[in-house]
Design a protein around this nucleic acid. Structure first.
Lengths: 415, 415
DNA sequence: CGAGTTCGGAAAGATTGCTTCTTAATTACC
DNA sequence: GGTAATTAAGAAGCAATCTTTCCGAACTCG
């Protein structure tokens, strides 16, 4: 709708401004001197200085007097860094049992965080209300208005389909009315909110630690999903259904959902499936510590295996073998640098992981490295923040690239 | 090693020149008028004219006088198109039984093609010699010197590993000494030659017909492999081993190679496996047309199934079911727009394809469209040419973007 | 053959980045 | 404590580019 878009020497200036801003960003908290930015961007010093002036005027960049420490000869240089608090973003983890929220700025500094259990009823209206209260709480903690939030990303289980700002969920977590929650969210943060599969967000969190690599990130807990990262970028698939490994068929029956809406492999290897397996196996081992236990969790099974309990060892070994066997086609297809284990099972302990490592070479051509993310329960929230930061950054650079030089009007609201 | 690289207003000009060249390219054979290019590139007419002058001087672009047809009011405009014959590239398909070669220009016009059977012995020296003769033949047919070939891409079965211009082949096609062949090739076309897995090249050929889409391209014949195309780009994997679906394990035994170097699924569903399966099944059907046949091929089995032969129907249905069942994890992982069938089996006939289509929804969450490429045997060569063109184009635009404006020196050798 | 239309070329104006020179601020050394 | 050395920052002149604008060229239509 722009009336006209002349692309004269102005584009060059804007391009250079973005290049300088990018260089400033990658300099991190310590900031960078103009001379350093000049070599990084392959621009000359006066050009960089010009761009920096604009960026400082636009309140994107902060100049810090040399003063502190670092003894050098010559006149001390000003250093420039991204303004702390620039582009605050909101990340959400909307699980069936727990809601988490956090705010960070573009540099990744966490400004506030909060979480709470989901109280019944779990219908859309109720959950939406609880989420709103949680968001209010974190915003109040940061002192930010919701208009200042540059981007919002929410994670939730299930296949997420987006149709013109409306969100539907494919079968998963029965009764889990995420759809209504998300439409409320996108009303509140118009144009800035998006939803993403929780396994995908866990993958984004892992991708942030392996920039540019190719990963298969297994989100393994009550449910089972995978996030596929190709050369550092999340792969969503043509229908936003990539990585749905919980649906992998394990028999000729094909894809069926169990009573809880779980796919075949998810049914077999999800936490519930592992417990069921353990119960059945324990019957043959009367003196196993698993026998006759009432409240059994997958954690208990893995812990018992690590202690050497024979039934638990048997179950765990079988789980590992089946998992790798069924995962083999995924690994052969993607050929990742690493296989990352996230989700609740990632805290399972060494025995399961050792078993997985042992089985990997048997079923794959080029076994990837197996890594475990211990902070599994924070992965989704971390990924949401990471993705929100990316989106905010992309929008900012796009803005600067075409039109808004950042120097004159359009003041950024103060913190 | 460039002494210095100032990036003044010159970069802007080079950027615009590339933009104009890209617009000219996408205009195709008909060419485009300067005014059209101006709107396409969002540049002004004088700027485009300037760039066109440079490009014509650099012999990248050809101006064609309006003359022919197309009656319009006003002064007829010059039209500009890529110079025919610009950046000739060589594509090769180096199979165990047959060598194919073709030359095309950047626009995809095929300038020459030739192929020949591989004569024994099939060692590196012998095959290399035969390939050299074939290349000489196509080059002679085009009248080009080998220095004028802008890029060479060769396809061959097997996992291909490149180490500093040296090529090794992972186990596949025993005795198939492609390694030596490729090092000879890269000596001849220094810096311009590369090798690629044949399944990957078939995928590239399919990708060219579905720009920007996500595809799983099954290369199914004597051997079994897949090429993964993500958003239009070939995905090679971290170890260049992506899409090796022939290695998918079909039993707890894991990945084993048979006597012919085939992986488990390849052993089961490759052409040889299908024939073996048919032989075994036919024993229970004495009046089947497959019973007692000496020289049986997979083609024969599928043709018989189409005629309604009960043994053949049974075998084909089973093949289809096993294939989709084993392919399900791949599809669930990638979530492609389409599943493309290429290779010899793609000519199998309607019955197999129908069976495959029928099984797809049973084993996948979002069944992709199943497409068949009938020109399966040309797919590898087409893909090689397509990839070679991409590489030549990328190198050209890179050159133009930094340094070589294309206007003054550096004359392109005449056709 | 003239009016209308579109294309192609050229000159003037404006913006940008580069080069170079000069001034400023700090440390090292005598 | 003063001077030399060193590095940073600012300013002016220059070269290159794109844009705007104008005018001639070429062709069709009536």
């Amino acid at each position: 709708m722009t009336v006209k878009e002349p692309s004269g020497t102005g584009v060059l200036r804007r391009l250079n401004t973005v290049a300088v801003l990018t260089a400033v960003r990658s300099a991190g908290d310590a900031g960078a001197r103009i001379a350093e930015l000049a070599t990084d961007t392959r621009l000359t010093r006066p050009t960089v200085a010009q761009a920096i002036d604009d960026l400082v005027a636009g309140r994107y960049v902060l100049g810090i007097a040399a003063g502190s420490g670092r003894p050098t000869v010559g006149r001390p240089a000003m250093r420039y860094r991204l303004r702390p608090g620039l582009l605050p973003v909101l990340g959400l983890d909307i699980g069936p049992h727990r809601l988490s929220a956090a705010v960070s700025d573009l540099q990744g500094v966490r400004l506030a965080a909060a979480d709470r259990a989901v109280r019944p009823p779990r219908n859309a209206a109720s959950v939406s209300k609880q989420l709103t209260a949680l968001i209010d709480r974190v915003l109040r903690a940061t002192g930010l208005e919701q208009e200042q939030i540059a981007s919002v990303v929410a994670g939730s289980p299930g296949v997420i389909e987006v149709d013109e700002a409306d969100v539907r969920m494919a079968p998963s977590v029965p009764g889990w009315a995420a759809s209504g929650v998300f439409s409320a969210l996108s009303r509140r943060f118009a144009g800035r909110a998006m939803v993403e599969n929780d396994a995908n967000l866990a993958a984004v969190a892992a991708a942030a630690e392996h920039p540019g690599r190719t990963l298969v990130v297994i989100h393994w807990g009550e449910r089972l999903g995978a996030g596929i990262v190709i050369d550092g970028a999340l792969h969503r698939g043509a229908h936003r259904a990539a990585g749905e490994i919980g649906m992998i068929p394990v028999s000729a029956a094909g894809v069926r959902f169990d009573d809880e809406g779980r796919g075949p492999l998810e049914h077999l290897l999800g936490a519930a499936g592992i417990v069921a397996n353990a119960r059945a196996t324990a019957e043959g081992f009367p003196d196993s510590s698993l026998a006759g236990v009432d409240q059994l969790t997958a954690q208990d099974v893995f812990a018992a295996a690590e202690r050497g309990d024979p039934a638990a060892v048997r179950v765990t070994a079988r789980v590992a073998r089946v998992m790798i066997q069924r995962l083999a086609p995924v690994i052969l297809t993607v050929d990742p640098d690493a296989l990352v284990l996230s989700g609740g099972v990632a805290r399972a302990g060494a025995f399961l992981v050792d078993q997985l490592r042992r089985e990997l070479p048997r079923y794959t051509l080029v076994p990837p490295e197996l890594q475990v993310r211990p902070d599994a329960d924070r992965a989704v929230l971390d990924g949401a923040l990471s993705m929100a930061r990316s989106r905010a950054w992309d929008r900012l650079t796009d803005q600067l690239r075409n039109g808004d030089t950042g120097r004159s009007p359009r003041p950024i609201p103060d913190e």
